[in-house]
């Protein structure tokens, strides 16, 4: 009887794994996977979960000031959905053998990333429109692709989440459209907000393909199916028509339509700003992490109480069973 060396064994499994990915088979938690695939997925999925949770803050900032009861309810429901997405994706990440506690700790320690877009402040009610429309809109473009990701639990989470994101985008666009056809002050509020959110939302797709360190590997393993630039272009093409429909303008004098490709070509993105925010020097990086830390610390006694109570219950149940025996 011959045994394969571990190296040969692994390379055979790797070949088999890559063949499955190439054949668009879904990889499930119990399947063998390369460690690097696992760690890339943990990184990506936990960043995604953190983004959902940190993303509750900028919009949460306006729930108490929403200008009508209907808007207040829609916004509250939307932000609640984002919390649900976070929870759902954390659970999906746990299928890869990490626990949520550990991931949350990485966020609180400032070691984990989340979408940089949430490091921008929300300064007017119109920002609730701009975020839903542009930020959730960009997320949909990204997540529609991720719904075809090779890792089953992630792909399935994306399918479910995308349905809600469509509602988020619709309510955001509706806020903007209502403002744009409202009073002059409302229209100005909408335009000012679009001016602030336009470029950061384009940056959400990440650096140009040539500058994106993880892209090749993620594409090879079918975690990503399209490049950053392809997705960004798709988003721009979709969005420009929507901007025009509500009679606003994007803050880009260089924007032009390319007849040959049918694409809207934007002016240059300020990548210095992008990296500045990624590296922690955006307008709200400190506030966002600080808010998460405070919630976590202020909640410590509550979590401790829940654990202590559950333990007492268990002990009581055990004693009752023992007495009955």
């Amino acid at each position: 009887m011959t045994t394969m060396s571990p190296v040969a064994d692994d390379s055979a499994r790797l070949a088999q794994f890559e063949a499955r990915v190439a054949a668009d088979e879904s990889i499930e938690p119990k399947d063998w996977m390369p460690e690097r695939y696992r760690s890339q997925l943990i990184r990506m999925m936990s960043q995604h979960a953190h983004s959902e949770v940190v993303g509750m803050l900028p919009e949460g900032n306006w729930i108490t000031r929403a200008p009508s009861l209907r808007r207040k309810m829609i916004l509250l429901a939307k932000v609640q959905d984002e919390g649900g997405h976070g929870l759902y994706i954390y659970c999906g990440t746990e299928t890869l053998g990490v626990d949520r506690q550990e991931l949350v700790q990485q966020l609180l320690d400032g070691k984990a990333k989340y979408s940089s877009i949430f490091n921008y402040p929300t300064l007017s009610w119109a920002d609730m429109g701009a975020i839903g429309w542009l930020v959730d809109g960009a997320a949909i473009v990204n997540q529609t692709m991720l719904a075809k990701a090779s890792y089953g639990p992630y792909a399935r989470a994306m399918v479910r989440i995308c349905k809600e994101e469509n509602f988020h985008k619709r309510q955001g666009y509706e806020i903007m459209a209502t403002l744009a056809r409202g009073t002059p002050a409302q229209k100005a509020m909408a335009q000012e907000s679009l001016n602030r959110w336009w470029w950061p939302s384009l940056m959400m797709f990440g650096p140009h393909d040539k500058d994106s360190s993880n892209s090749d590997e993620l594409m090879k393993w079918g975690i990503k199916r399209k490049s950053n630039d392809e997705l960004r272009q798709r988003f721009v093409n979709l969005t420009i028509a929507q901007v025009k429909a509500i009679d606003l303008t994007v803050p880009d004098p260089a924007l032009r339509y390319d007849e040959a490709t049918g694409n809207w070509i934007t002016g240059p993105i300020d990548w210095d700003e992008f990296w500045r925010v990624v590296k922690g020097n955006g307008p709200c990086n400190r506030e966002r992490i600080e808010a998460r830390r405070r919630a976590h610390e202020d909640g410590a006694w509550v979590r401790a109480a829940a654990i202590a109570h559950a333990e007492k219950q268990q002990r009581n149940n055990r004693e009752t069973t023992e007495r009955q025996q």
């Binding site: 509750m56 729930i63 207040k72 509250l76 429901a77 929870l87 919630a295 909640g299």
Partner: peptide, 19 residues
């Protein structure tokens, strides 16, 4: 209660309080 949104002791409670 809506003032809690994003700041509750655990994510599950954030969702419950929003609800």
């Amino acid at each position: 209660t809506s003032e809690w949104c994003g700041h509750a002791p655990i994510l599950e409670e954030d969702i419950a309080l929003a609800n």
